[in-house]
């Protein structure tokens, strides 16, 4: 099944773009922008708006069409969780299968100072009317906050006998999150903790595919709630812990 962007007719390939070029605004700049869009592989490029940002920069809004199509049947992607349980279902599942509370430690690690992601998943209140893990009676949730060194996260995971570790990464400038996440996995392996922990990452620029590539069990992007993460953790633990 080949697909193309849809503007107002099937397969018209219509795309909207906006970008800035380091040139002074004017007719030549608009023509340059149009030709640039064509070079990107589009056809019928139209610059609908051009505005100077300074004497050296111009902002453009463009519409263009593309002939490039994608064979969607060849696209592979597995979500970390197909269907999430509710908070109550998660707690019942833990009671029935583990007969103890599960320990989950979360942090925003490295130099990242943004707690918004980890708070949304862990804090009592949660996010958008979805309670966080602290509210789960069968989960012992420990939110370490931001700028937590990887060493400290693992040290606390060991001390609290954590079942799962959640790592939030918001800042992705210059791939700082990749370096940091790789470092954490290496440390966990060196300290022989990797197999004892479910390790999950989250953040707006993170997904399940990236997580797997980096050696994590799962990755969650924007729009994730605590129950999604909790569902993954309990299912994963039931596969590993309960089989032993």
């Amino acid at each position: 099944m080949f697909i193309k962007p849809y503007g107002d007719t099937l397969d018209d390939g219509a795309v909207q773009l906006s970008f800035t070029l380091p040139v002074a605004c004017g007719g030549r700049a608009k023509e340059g922008a149009r030709q640039y869009v064509l070079k990107l592989g589009f056809r019928h490029a139209e610059i609908v708006h051009a505005h100077p940002l300074s004497p050296e920069f111009t902002f453009f809004v463009a519409y263009a069409r593309t002939d490039i199509a994608l064979d969607y049947s060849k696209v592979e992607y597995a979500e970390a969780v197909d269907k999430s349980m509710t908070m109550d279902q998660v707690n019942d599942y833990i009671r029935a299968n583990f007969k103890r509370k599960l320990v989950v430690i979360g942090a925003c690690t490295g130099t990242d100072a943004h707690t918004v992601g980890i708070d949304a998943i862990m804090n009592m209140k949660g996010y958008n009317h979805h309670f966080g893990l602290e509210r789960y009676p069968m989960i012992e949730a420990l939110n370490l906050g931001s700028q937590v060194p990887n060493e400290r996260l693992l040290e606390l995971a060991r001390r609290h006998k954590a079942d799962a570790v959640l790592v939030s990464q918001i800042v992705t400038q210059k791939d700082v999150h990749i370096h940091n996440l790789t470092n954490l996995i290496e440390l966990a392996e060196a300290e022989k903790l990797r197999d004892k922990l479910v390790m999950v990452i989250g953040g707006p620029r993170v997904n399940n595919k990236l997580a797997k590539e980096l050696g994590y069990d799962a990755g969650f992007g924007a729009g994730t709630y605590a129950e999604d993460v909790a569902t993954f953790i309990v299912k994963k633990l039931s596969r590993t812990l309960l089989k032993k």
Partner: peptide, 24 residues
Amino acid sequence: KQARAAALQGADIVAVIRTTAQSL
């Protein structure tokens, strides 16, 4: 460069945000 462009567009105040973790 960015501050100059912003000022030309009408910004009155420019803050240079600090690198992550300088506060520590």
